[in-house]
Design a protein around this nucleic acid. Structure first.
Length: 429
RNA sequence: UCCGCGAUAGCUCAAUGGUAGAGCAUGCGGCUGUUAACCGCAGGGCUGUAGGUUCGAGUCCUACUCGCGGAGCCA
């Protein structure tokens, strides 16, 4: 048995393939069966007379998504999808598929998402999932090659990490409530004090009732954290990281990007250095564009689009008002009103894909922040220990995997960037 | 939580307040190079639910349910 992606090595040979029927066309004495096997698409041509009569008729009984085995000679054929074609000499049914719900015509998003378990078989979804896989591998390769150690944080946690988001709650035996993690960052900080440079990579959960195309309740996040990094080191890392991911996908997934009809010219521009602007400069941009924006507020989705539209590559916005940022972010010694935080805004309106900061490494200041945010100090004692025993400057960031996939693939909605999206009104299939 | 929009055949959508229609899918027939193939025929509907207005409601009104998008919050 061979796979469609390897057909170039078998031109002229008779081979057997297995897969599913993607589409079928017939014209009397000739039938075209489009086979898909997860690695590609292949037009199988059944000429009457080239295969036993009963096998020729068997093809008529195959409906969309029927699984079957096919044998024939491989030849190059410009007219066919993928550039190769199979002259069928034998054909066998594996299992029938009656009335497959997703037909070759248009469907609404609601119908497709109801049938997500089948929708992922379609060409477009396969391309997205392959790119997602390549991005995940690029992320791991990037950090592994730069001395970062994978460090898995717990998913069940006793408290709200940043004390702001609404979290999913569950009963944890006799210990009361536990929550699904919204970030592995605090644990990553502990890891950085042990291993120097670490990254976490796993699912995170937000119970916010967000009803937008940019939100999921369950999504994947990668969070590097490095000891002895300041904000500039953090931004250097973030831009090298994004450049690597985008250029890797451009190198390895041209076919998939073509299927998605992604305009790759904007992705090709994702090269260092990225523009770095302060929050103040970003506010000035908004005001120049007629937005009535008050210093101290956070940017909304529309604001982010305006700011990012001024640049041809991702833009890093740093030094946000500390009031709107998490308690653990270090304040700028030159201006305590702002935090040493950075958000990276993707181009083309895809918004914030990275949020990061230098962390507060001073015990007394951190204690003060916890009080100001009215957080329960007892839950943070272990975190405060990191400042009690050899505290060092450190920084890190979090990158949302689905937003990154969404941006690189040019998707309309985050729900296509993950195999089984979890949204506020949907947890099936 | 708030603000908009929507719900008609398996799917995508039409239908001035006056007999509920098309394309795709499905079934049958035709075609030796098709590219979401094409041509012909056929089956397929309690118009989201409950009320109301009207001689008459898919269409107008009210409530509800479900969904979609946006705000807030964030990756």
């Amino acid at each position: 048995m061979v796979y469609i992606k390897d057909l170039s090595k078998h031109v002229g040979e008779e081979v057997t393939l297995k897969g599913w029927l993607y589409n079928k066309r017939s014209s009397g004495k000739i039938k075209f069966l489009i086979l898909r096997d997860g690695t590609g698409y292949l037009q199988c041509v059944a000429f009457k007379g080239n295969l036993p009569e009963e096998k020729f008729e068997l093809a008529d009984t195959f409906s969309q998504e029927t699984s079957f085995e096919v044998t024939g000679k491989v030849k190059e054929e410009k007219r066919a999808v993928g550039g190769y074609e199979l002259d069928v000499t034998d054909l066998d049914l594996i299992s029938a598929a009656e009335n497959y719900p997703i037909t070759p015509k248009e469907h609404g998003v609601e119908f497709l998402i109801d049938h997500r378990h089948l929708w992922i078989r379609s060409q477009r979804q396969v391309a997205i999932l392959k790119i997602r896989h390549r991005i995940v591998k690029a992320i791991r390769d990037f950090f592994d090659d730069r001395g970062f150690t994978l460090f898995d944080p717990p998913i069940l946690t006793p408290n709200a990490c940043e004390g702001t988001s609404t979290l999913f709650e569950t009963e944890y035996f006799d210990l009361g409530k536990a929550y699904l993690t919204q970030s592995g960052q605090l644990y990553a900080e502990a890891g950085a004090m042990a291993l120097g440079k670490v990254y976490t990579f796993g699912p995170t959960f937000r119970a916010e009732k967000s009803k937008t195309r940019r939100h999921l309740t369950e999504f994947w996040m990668v969070e590097p954290e490095a000891a002895f990094f300041d904000l500039n080191d953090d931004m250097d890392l973030a831009e090298e990281f994004l450049e690597y991911i985008v250029q890797t996908v451009l190198k390895d997934n041209q076919e998939d990007l073509k299927i998605l009809e992604r305009d790759t010219s904007t992705l090709e521009k994702v090269k260092r250095p990225f523009p770095r602007i302060s929050y103040d400069e970003a506010v000035a941009i908004l005001k120049e564009n007629g937005v009535d924006f008050e210093w101290g507020n956070d940017f909304g989705g529309g604001d982010e689009t305006i700011i990012s539209s001024k640049f041809d590559r991702p833009v890093m916005v740093h030094r946000y008002p500390s009031e709107i940022k998490a308690f653990y972010m270090k304040r700028d010694p030159d201006n305590p009103k702002v935090a040493l935080a950075v958000d990276v805004l993707a181009p083309e309106g895809y918004g914030e894909i990275i949020g990061g900061s230098q962390r507060e490494d001073n015990l007394d200041l951190l204690l003060q922040r916890i009080k100001e945010h009215e957080l329960p100090q007892e839950f943070f004692e272990w975190y405060l220990d990191l400042r009690r025993y050899g505290s060092v400057p450190h920084a890190g960031f979090g990158l949302g995997l689905e937003r990154t996939v969404s941006w690189i693939c040019g998707l309309e909605h985050l729900r296509e960037a993950i195999p089984f999206p979890r949204m506020i009104y949907r947890n099936t299939p």
